[in-house]
Amino acid sequence: MAYITRYIFGTDKLRPQAFEVRGINGISTGVVHCQDAAMLSQWIKHITNNIIGLTNLQMKLYNSSFPASEHVLYMGWVCEGVLNHNLPWQNWKPKFIALKGTDIYMFDTPPLNTHDWVERASVWAVHQTMFRVIKESEYVDERQHCFLLQTAMQESRYLSVETRQDLLRIENAWHRAVYNAVTRLGNKTFAVTQGGRSSGLTLDWAGGFALYDTETREFHWRYKFSQLKGSSDDSKTKLKLHFQNENKEIETKELECATNLQNLLFCMHAFLTAKVAAVDPSFLRAPPKTPT
C-alpha cells in the first residue's frame, strides 16, 4: 500500500530520471537517481508491479471480512489538486481511494482495519457520482493522467495518477463498480412534472425509461435505454430527452425536475454506463490482475 512517484512532492514537476517510494505512513525512500531512462523505466515497472500485487493481496484479506456485496474492487493512491486562494494550481496532496461495494471511499492514509473504513473515509455512492477522464488540453498544470470525480451538490475533485496504466485500472474498476451498483439498485424514480402534471420518471435496469402520471396512476410512455439518442438541460431544472421511436422518428420529452437535477443526470449516466459495460460480461467478471 505504498506508492512510487516521479513528481517532486506536492508539485506538478517531474524529477529528471529519478523517483521516490512513499510508504503507507508517508515515509520516503529518499530520491533514487537512475543512470538513464531505460534503468528508470525498469525500476518503476518492477516496483509498481510489486505494489499492485501486494495491494491486491491486501484487498483479498479485506474481502474475507466483508460480505460479497461489499467487496473491494480497487485500492490505490492518487494525488488531489488543491486550489490556493485564487492562485494557480500548485499544491498536490496524496489521497488513497477505494471502490468498495456500491461506494467510492477517499482516505488521507490507507485503512489499516475494518474500523477505518467506517470512521476515516469520505464516502459517495457510485451511482450518484460522475467519473470523467480529463483531456490533455484541459490539464490545469503539468500533471498528467488526470480525472474528475463529481457528486451532486459538491465541488469536483481533480485527481491525478502516475501513469496511463494506473488511469486505465481505475477507469475499468469504476465501470465494474457502476455495473454492480446499478444492478443492485434495480430502479430509481425521480419526481418530475411534464406539461404541468405531477409525474415520476423511473430508470429501470430491465425496462429503461418510464414516465408515471401520479394523478391518473398510469404510465404515459416507456422507452428502452437504447432508444435514447440525446439529452439536454438548462443546468437548473429542465431536462429534454430525445428518443427514437419504432418508426425511426425522434420524439422529445421535456421534463422539469422537482428535486436536484444533477442527481437525476448522474444516475441516468450510471444506468447508461452500466448498460454499455454489460455488453462485455467477461470484462465485468474479470478480477484485478496481479502482475507477474
Rank of each mutant, 00 (worst) to 15 (best):
T109E: 08
E218A: 03
A121W: 00
T189F: 00
G101W: 00
Q144I: 13
A18D: 05
V140C: 08
N50F: 11
P288W: 10
L87Y: 12
L40H: 12
E70R: 09
V31F: 08
A18P: 02
N84A: 09
C79V: 15
P67E: 12
L57D: 07
E215S: 15
V140E: 05
V182K: 02
P88Y: 00
K100G: 08
T237N: 07
I47M: 02
A125M: 04
A2C: 06
V276N: 08
W124L: 12
A152G: 11
A277P: 05
V279P: 10
E138A: 04
K135C: 00
S28I: 13
K93M: 14
K253M: 14
L228H: 10
M39F: 09
T237A: 12
P67T: 01
S282Q: 13
V182I: 15
D12E: 11
W221Y: 10
K135E: 05
T252A: 15
A278W: 01
E142A: 05
N25A: 02
K253D: 10
S137F: 12
P287S: 04
T273A: 12
S235M: 03
L185W: 01
W89S: 12
A210R: 09
L57F: 01
A277Y: 09
L284W: 03
L211V: 12
Q194R: 13
L241K: 04
W205A: 02
G23C: 07
S122G: 05
E256Q: 06
S160Y: 14
V133G: 00
D233E: 06
P16Y: 03
P16E: 13
N180E: 01
H220D: 15
N245F: 14
D280N: 14
L185Y: 03
R132K: 11
S69I: 00
A206K: 14
L54S: 07
T151P: 12
I250Y: 12
R217L: 08
Y62Q: 03
A286G: 04
A173Y: 01
I97C: 02
T259N: 05
G10N: 07
L241Q: 06
K248Q: 14
R169C: 08
N263A: 02
A278I: 04
W92G: 15
R120W: 02
N113R: 09
C79P: 05
V192T: 10
Q165S: 13
F243H: 06
F283P: 01
Y62T: 03
I44L: 15
D141Q: 03
K275N: 02
T151K: 04
I104D: 00
S235T: 01
W221H: 13
S199N: 13
V72K: 01
G30R: 11
F19C: 04
V82H: 14
L14T: 08
G76A: 06
Q128I: 01
M75S: 13
P110S: 09
N25Q: 06
F209G: 02
V21N: 03
T290H: 03
L83G: 10
V78C: 15
R143K: 08
G230V: 11
P281Q: 14
F209N: 01
A270W: 06
T5I: 05
F131A: 04
Y158H: 14
D108Q: 13
G10D: 11
D213H: 11
G76F: 08
E20P: 10
Q150I: 06
L87A: 08
L148W: 03
N63H: 00
E136G: 07
A37M: 10
N84Y: 10
D108H: 13
